[in-house]
Simulated assay, not measured.
Amino acid sequence: MQTGLQALIFDVDGTLADTERDGHRPAFNAAFAEAGLDWHWSVELYGELLAVTGGKERMRHYLAQYRPDFELDKQRYSDLDTLIVQLHKRKTELYVERLGQGGIPLRSGVLRLLREARDAGVRLAIATTTTPANVTALLDSGPEPGLVNWFEVIAAGDVVREKKPAPDIFEFALAQLNLPAAACVAIEDSENGVRSALGAGLDALLVTTSSYTESQDFGGATLVVDQLGEPGDPASALMGDLGGAEYVGLDVLRRLLDQVFG
Rank of each mutant, 00 (worst) to 15 (best):
L223N: 06
A181T: 00
L106W: 09
P231D: 01
S190C: 00
L63E: 01
L45N: 11
P167Q: 05
L45F: 12
F70N: 00
V135M: 08
L202R: 05
T208F: 10
I9E: 01
A175V: 02
K163V: 10
V148E: 13
E44L: 08
G219I: 11
E230T: 13
H24F: 10
L206S: 04
G240P: 03
E44I: 05
G243Y: 01
H88S: 04
D233L: 12
L8W: 11
G220H: 06
V85M: 14
G121L: 02
R76C: 11
E48M: 12
Q65H: 13
R58T: 13
G229E: 04
E71I: 13
M239P: 12
V207P: 03
A7Y: 01
A166R: 12
G157Y: 05
R76D: 08
D233K: 15
L139T: 06
H88V: 09
F218I: 01
V85Q: 14
L238G: 07
R67S: 08
L138F: 08
D251W: 11
A35C: 10
F170D: 01
E34K: 03
A204G: 02
R112T: 10
G23H: 10
G47E: 08
V248P: 08
E57Q: 15
V194M: 01
P145T: 11
E171T: 14
T92N: 08
V207C: 06
Y66G: 10
R67C: 07
P234K: 01
L87V: 08
I9L: 07
M1T: 15
A197Q: 07
K91W: 06
E57R: 13
A186H: 04
P68N: 06
G102M: 05
V225G: 00
T209V: 15
E171W: 12
E230P: 07
P145D: 11
E44V: 12
D189T: 01
Y66P: 10
V122L: 01
T213Y: 03
A221F: 09
A235G: 11
V224N: 00
A175P: 07
Q176G: 03
R118W: 11
Q2C: 13
